[in-house]
Design a protein around this nucleic acid. Structure first.
Lengths: 185, 185
DNA sequence: GACATATATATAAGCGCTTATGTAATGTGT
DNA sequence: ACACATTACATAAGCGCTTATATATATGTC
């Protein structure tokens, strides 16, 4: 029995990220994979506000706040209140964080090469497959596809007109989905 | 900048599962996607122990314990202590849970059709792409690929013999990875 | 300058999992 | 029959996110 897409997705995340986390550890770095998007944001622009980091890392603002808090506790980042706007916090690499950069870059290169090795043993690059799926769902969301399937199904099974119809207007649901896992599908 | 495989994977999970969860809700069902593997296990074999459910659903035993606890609280399942082995708990569908089955099956069919619709707009089925990636990582783990990349890299950048080598024996790491996310890669 | 409103960040709670560990009930060897 | 390990399950804590909401500063209006 097909384990479900969600199961496969989670499994893949674990397979990949477990290895990456281990690699940092065995390189003697106290560093979590979730730090990387923040690091990259700061390399690109320093200092950076929490909001900018969230945007660059494509995570929500609370997630950025949390990750930055962790990284400050680890001594990788420094923060100072924004001088022009007191609500902002200006985040910078600490000396310790900056000193870690060369070793991090080496890890990132290794990770990238491993990714290429993986892609080489696949019919097509994994990131591409995922990107295509995401793009397809942006064109027509999974919810919309379900709505269409529902109407197709109710027509098929009741040539007259049974219950399950539930007129979904079948168009692109505007205020669309935003929630959790996939054990179905 | 490539958001990283992990980000894409998580994003996909949300896209898919948000829609599925919404579908249950709008069908008037108090039912979470994570219940489905448990339901399927019970359809296949009833009564079922926690351990059997965990195995069938391909999750850890504590995850099974938790999900079953939720489902009991929702009134979908009943549990009785095992009569031959007092450590076991025998899990069954409650009447309420059993009554939900027809509507669930309908939801599952719709979900499956939506999945087919998605696959139809992709160069190849998503589950297949994921399966191939997982299979490739079973042949050679991401950690192993990283180790190889590391040695390749250190040879390249130091024709003599610099520091970063870190003899990783480069073979298949037996006591291999088992941890978390992918923001790198 | 007092006011409502908007914006930047922080905090709390939840999700579905995981690992690590605790607690019983069962089986084993002597 | 007793200490001992093994097994089935439960509990606790953590992961990296999310949504919802609170707090503090800024800004615009009168």
């Amino acid at each position: 029995m097909m384990p479900g897409l969600g199961t496969q997705l989670r499994h893949l995340i674990e397979l990949l990220d477990g290895a990456v986390e281990e690699a940092y550890a065995s390189a003697g770095l106290r560093y979590r994979p979730r730090y990387t998007p923040v690091m990259r944001a700061l390399i690109a622009c320093e200092p950076c506000t929490i909001g900018q980091i969230a945007e660059a890392a494509k995570i929500t603002q609370p997630a950025a706040t949390q990750t930055v808090a962790l990284m400050i506790k680890e001594g990788l980042l420094d923060s100072e209140p924004g001088l022009v706007d007191g609500r902002q916090r200006l985040i910078r690499l600490s000396p310790r964080g900056r000193a870690m950069l060369p070793r991090l870059r080496e890890c990132w290169k290794v990770t990238q090469m491993a990714g290429e090795s993986l892609d080489a043993s696949l019919p097509r690059p994994l990131a591409q497959s995922l990107g295509e799926a995401i793009a397809a769902l942006e064109v027509e969301s999974f919810g919309d596809r379900m709505a269409k399937a529902r109407s197709r199904l109710s027509v098929a099974e009741s040539p007259s007109g049974r219950s399950a119809a539930r007129k979904h207007t079948a168009g692109a649901s505007k205020g669309a989905a935003k929630k959790k896992r996939t054990n179905d599908a």
